[in-house]
Structures are given as C-alpha cells and as structure tokens.
Simulated scan of single mutants.
Amino acid sequence: MPKQFMKRYLPTPDRVRSIQALHFLGDILHEPNLWHINRHCVARAILIGIFFCLIPMPFQMVAAAFCAIWFNANLPLSVVLVWISNPLTMPPLFYFNYKVGAWLLDRPVMHFQFELSWGWISESLVEIGIPLYFGSLIVATLASCLCYLFIQYLWRRRVRAHWRERQLRRCQREG
C-alpha cells in the first residue's frame, strides 16, 4: 500500500486538532488509531468512505467521520473518500443505484426529468426514493466490502513481497 503517499497528502493529527471548529470533540481526536496508517485502520476507513459516498444523504462527511471514530478507522481517509461522490459523479452513481434498486424490487425504471422544486420532490419521493435508497444500500454494502477485502489483500501481498526481498538480501549477504 502506498503508505508514504497517504502520509504526504493526509493532514497531520496536530493540524486537525488545531482547527477551532473541532474542539467540541475534545479528546476524541487524540485517539491514535484515528491517525494510524496500517492495514486495519486504512481498510476500515475505505469501507466507511466508500459506503457513505454511495448513499444519497446530506452531510456524508459528518456521518463518515462519526463512523470512523466509532470503528477506530483512519479519520482523514474516511472523510476524503466520501468526495468520490461529488457534484460531477453523483448523477451517474445515483442513477445506477436507482436502476439496481428498481431491478431488485422488480419495478419499471421510470424515465423522469429532474426538477428542483418541492412539488416534484414530494410527488416523486416514493416512486423514485424507495428504489434509489434500496439500490444505494445494496451497492454501497457490496462495493465497500469488496474494497475492504481488496485493500486487505493488496496490503498483505505488499508485506509478503517486502519480506521476500529482505530474506533475499539477507541470504545474499550471508552467502
């Protein structure tokens, strides 16, 4: 895993602790596992970040941060991964989730024109919302679990490769 890459771009614990808006959290930010870059913390952070980026809800970063704190995952990575669903990627991601939900619920896929009005939202909420959220939960669960397992696999593979390299160097020095 590119540990040095992550260390370079993720904020340091001291920098996050210095943010005045986060002082209401108190000593929670002093938990070392929230800042560690190891296999378990990173894999949990990826699971949390991918899950919440695929759920259509406001304040995704807040939910990801609270889950990262609850499950001792890497906090900055959990929050950063939520930005996979940004204003450019949300429409295709959520439309895919809607289609999966409609398919699983055996409902026809509605062709609709989005309007930003309370009337349209209240009329379409049940027809579109149920398949959207059901599909989002299924896709988010599957994608986050697969990413978790993939990161665990990559991390272990990298560690084994480093062990083999060190063993080869040791054998060359001795022999």
Results as ranks from 00 to 15, higher is better:
residue 38 N to D: 14
residue 38 N to E: 05
residue 41 C to T: 15
residue 41 C to M: 06
residue 42 V to K: 04
residue 42 V to L: 04
residue 44 R to I: 07
residue 44 R to N: 14
residue 46 I to G: 11
residue 47 L to C: 12
residue 48 I to H: 02
residue 48 I to P: 09
residue 49 G to C: 05
residue 49 G to P: 12
residue 50 I to K: 02
residue 50 I to T: 13
residue 51 F to H: 04
residue 52 F to K: 04
residue 53 C to H: 03
residue 56 P to E: 00
residue 58 P to M: 02
residue 58 P to A: 01
residue 58 P to L: 00
residue 59 F to R: 10
residue 60 Q to E: 12
residue 60 Q to K: 09
residue 63 A to M: 10
residue 64 A to M: 02
residue 67 C to A: 14
residue 68 A to D: 08
residue 68 A to H: 04
residue 72 N to A: 08
residue 73 A to R: 08
residue 73 A to I: 08
residue 78 S to M: 01
residue 79 V to M: 09
residue 80 V to G: 12
residue 80 V to F: 14
residue 80 V to Y: 12
residue 82 V to N: 04
residue 85 S to F: 00
residue 85 S to V: 04
residue 85 S to K: 01
residue 89 T to G: 09
residue 90 M to Q: 13
residue 92 P to D: 06
residue 94 F to G: 07
residue 95 Y to T: 15
residue 97 N to P: 10
residue 98 Y to T: 13
residue 99 K to S: 11
residue 99 K to I: 15
residue 100 V to C: 04
residue 101 G to I: 08
residue 101 G to E: 06
residue 101 G to M: 01
residue 102 A to R: 10
residue 103 W to P: 09
residue 103 W to R: 13
residue 106 D to N: 15
residue 106 D to W: 11
residue 106 D to I: 13
residue 108 P to W: 01
residue 108 P to Q: 10
residue 108 P to T: 10
residue 109 V to G: 02
residue 109 V to Y: 00
residue 112 F to M: 06
residue 112 F to Y: 08
residue 114 F to S: 12
residue 115 E to S: 12
residue 117 S to M: 07
residue 120 W to R: 04
residue 120 W to F: 09
residue 121 I to M: 03
residue 121 I to E: 00
residue 124 S to C: 05
residue 125 L to K: 06
residue 125 L to H: 00
residue 125 L to R: 06
residue 126 V to W: 10
residue 128 I to R: 07
residue 128 I to H: 07
residue 129 G to V: 13
residue 134 F to Y: 03
residue 140 A to T: 13
residue 141 T to Q: 06
residue 146 L to W: 03
residue 147 C to W: 04
residue 148 Y to H: 12
